[in-house]
Simulated scan of single mutants.
Amino acid sequence: MNNFVFYSPTEFVFGKDTEMQVGALAHKYGARKVMIVYGGGSVVRSGLLDRVKKSLQESGVGYCEFGGIQPNPVDTKVYEGIEICRREQVDMMLPVGGGSVIDTAKAIAAGVPYAGDFWDFFIGRAKVSRALKVAVVLTIPAAGSEGSGNSVITKVDTLQKLSLRVPELLRPVFSIMNPELTYTLPPFQTACGVADMMVHIMERYFTNTQDVEISDRLCEGTLTAIIKEAYRLKQNPEDYGARANIMWCGTIAHNGTCGVGCEEDWASHFLEHEISAIYDVTHGAGLSVVVPAWMTFAAEHHPKKVAQFASRIFGIPESEDLEEMALAGVARLKHFFRYLGLPVNFKELGIEHPDIDRLAENLHRNKGEFVGNYVKLTKENSKEIYRLAL
């Protein structure tokens, strides 16, 4: 196990009707004026936005609104939000929604006190030294952004989809999590969330770091829970217990718990970011295509941990042929994704003829000569993985 620093100060307020506490919590954390960030009309139609505003009013916390955030969030909305925040003298961001809304709010939070271009943080030109506080009302369990210090934004002009990780400043101070708010999610969106949180765990699980039994077992236990609860939700979308477990799994998957002491991988996410940047597909659906292809590649080049995954998650019998074990596990994973209604190849994703050369070129221009850690991918390796996803 490697040395590590684990810093996770978020206060999670979990359960039914917890959104009614947002005003008291914002006041507790010193907010004078918040920006409520949201996406489309679902938070309006459901009445959630009105409940949030009422709670803020009752606690004497001012607010302004910033809607229209789309999936695969873009830099243009971040710039717009930064200007509004400065004009309105906002001191806390309050995203109400899922990962795209939260990631946009975090990027705004970093950009408001910075004199330069917020994109400097994403390309490594500058480091975040100050940020507005962020708090969350979660409606989509998937990205885990309610418990992480991460943000992913796409730059429209260059179609660069890049991530920023600043846990010491961008982790939410509190996150409100009411599983009942997820009842109305379409089955496909629920399934995409399941894929996203599973891959967040797998990016930490597929590691070459030795003596990480505790991290391995945390990853395996959480993955097993996700799979079990996803089957329950497929049968009954309003099963509160299943919704609650899935929602908390999404947080645990990405708040750092599963990866302490490990060198993490992240190749699958970076491979997918290029797909969703160019073709604007749902991130979780892109991952359900990329991950089996990456695992197939890894089964040939470095099968040990993939075989362990196959045995411990899907019950594949142990064998001396680790590659065979690993590939059997990949087959079971693809079967599970298909059961949830997710794509497992480019055609099912709606991309008949992906530009593999362009995807690989963009990936390595953004991330360097080698991508990932479990198996370090060259540009030709990345092309091979994209071809395996055809």
Rank of each mutant, 00 (worst) to 15 (best):
S382H: 02
T104S: 15
R312Y: 08
D157G: 01
V134W: 02
D239I: 11
E146F: 08
E213Q: 15
F346G: 04
F206K: 07
M325L: 03
F297P: 13
F337R: 01
T209W: 08
T282F: 01
K228Q: 15
G98F: 02
P292I: 05
V96D: 08
G149S: 09
V173Y: 02
S42I: 03
T182R: 00
E320S: 14
N345S: 04
G23C: 13
A299V: 03
N236R: 07
P167E: 01
V96L: 05
D196W: 00
V260M: 15
S148M: 01
F4T: 10
F4P: 10
T154R: 12
I108D: 05
A26V: 05
K106I: 11
S268F: 00
G41H: 12
R243Y: 04
M197A: 05
A131W: 10
L340D: 11
T76I: 13
H200K: 03
A299C: 13
A267V: 11
N208D: 11
Y63H: 14
I69Q: 02
G15Q: 08
P167Q: 03
P113S: 13
N245D: 04
S59R: 01
K305L: 07
S129F: 07
K228S: 14
V22W: 10
G39C: 01
A298N: 11
S100H: 06
I252G: 03
E88L: 03
F336A: 11
E348P: 12
G193R: 06
H254A: 13
E263W: 03
G350L: 06
F4M: 09
T10G: 05
E229T: 11
E180W: 14
V112S: 08
V101M: 01
M295T: 01
F314T: 12
F370E: 14
L388D: 08
K304H: 11
N150Q: 09
L56Q: 08
D91T: 12
E384W: 00
E384D: 02
G67T: 06
D50G: 12
F6D: 02
D75T: 08
